[in-house]
Simulated scan of single mutants.
Amino acid sequence: MAFIPPTGSDTIPFVIKVNNPYGGTTKAPTIKAEFWKEGEQTSSAGHAATVTQLTDLANSTPAPTPPASPVEVKGTIPVSSSDKPTTASGKWTLKVTVTPDGATTPVDSKETTFEVKAATRVNGASVSPNPVTLKSNKEVDVFVAFELEKSGDEKVTDVRLESKSYDDYFSLSTSLETDGKSYHDSAAFDYSTSTGSWQLKITVTRGSKTYSFVKGFEVRKTGSSKAASKIKMTASPTKVKKGKTTKLSGKVYRGSTGWNKKIMKLYFKKKGSSKWSFVGYVGSNSSGKFSKTVKPKYTGYWRLAATGTSSTYGSYSNYKLVTVK
């Protein structure tokens, strides 16, 4: 199934079968693929598609045996979120030509149309109230709503409210209402819920593709003067040979300024594992900047934790994956 991505760019794969591509020789032909989007005339120049070229057969005695006919050749068609069909599904055209080595005229040409469906859309995503104000000894109901604009076999596979700075989240149901597109659910936040920036994250699968849609909101507390903290971390390089090092660096914030001389805990989680292991300590300088060189033994994730104080909330950094080759 071909469809337009909701954001960014993607590719539409295709497979063609070429009969007798070598024509009794050892030289591979040139295979060209071009396409036209909905509404474009095939009499005009098409857009280039990517196609895997065949290779020449090795010269040997006796003569090499050409592969069995037909030969499957794979290719891809670029597609982006700006490609918006005028209907729920539009007809695109693909043309493939095969030209023998040294020739100027194709010996084989085939044109076919295929359907490209509209992008998956999540409309009207909302979190109410926003901001969420937490009150001591009380629960606050946080309501979520959105509408899934379906153009194929889309399924909602995960809905959650998650903190951007802490390992704090609420999982919601994944069921749409009887109309197959509307969604409503809620979660109860209490005074222990982390404050700061949060997001509604909606995960949708369509065929073999997975897309996430997010909507930000804020969580605050009454009767609290604590400052929020935040850690931004990078890893360089992110791919290392075994025995080599990588540098973890960044900045820890208290409010909007660097957290002076803050001692943080460094954790590592091996890829495929669910357990974080304490590795050591990392300290920041007077402006909140930090740097730590580590020698990874395994491919996995790194993160830092800043423990909260009486005047500042704690926080975790983003995860950074370092691959050991």
Rank of each mutant, 00 (worst) to 15 (best):
T133Y: 15
E34A: 01
W36A: 03
T193V: 14
V279T: 08
N20G: 01
D168W: 07
A63D: 03
F217T: 04
T105F: 05
Y183Q: 00
K221T: 04
F268S: 12
A45E: 13
V240E: 00
P237M: 03
K84S: 11
Y281K: 15
A45G: 13
H47Y: 06
Y166V: 06
I16M: 13
T157S: 14
T97V: 10
A49R: 09
Y22T: 06
A48Y: 02
S89T: 14
S60M: 06
K135V: 15
A48S: 11
T323W: 09
L161S: 04
F35T: 12
P237F: 07
K289S: 08
Y316G: 00
T205Y: 04
P70W: 14
P5H: 14
K265Y: 00
N130F: 12
K221F: 01
F114I: 07
P6W: 12
R254D: 02
F35W: 00
K239P: 11
S208L: 03
S274I: 07
K247P: 03
T312W: 01
T157Y: 06
S291H: 03
Y298I: 06
T65K: 09
G8M: 12
L200M: 02
E154K: 05
A49Y: 09
K251Y: 00
S311K: 12
T195E: 03
T245Y: 07
S60D: 08
I263E: 15
S277H: 10
Y313C: 03
D83W: 10
E147D: 14
S80G: 08
E139G: 13
K269R: 15
L248E: 04
G223W: 09
V214W: 05
Y253W: 07
G272N: 05
V159N: 02
K247S: 09
D158S: 14
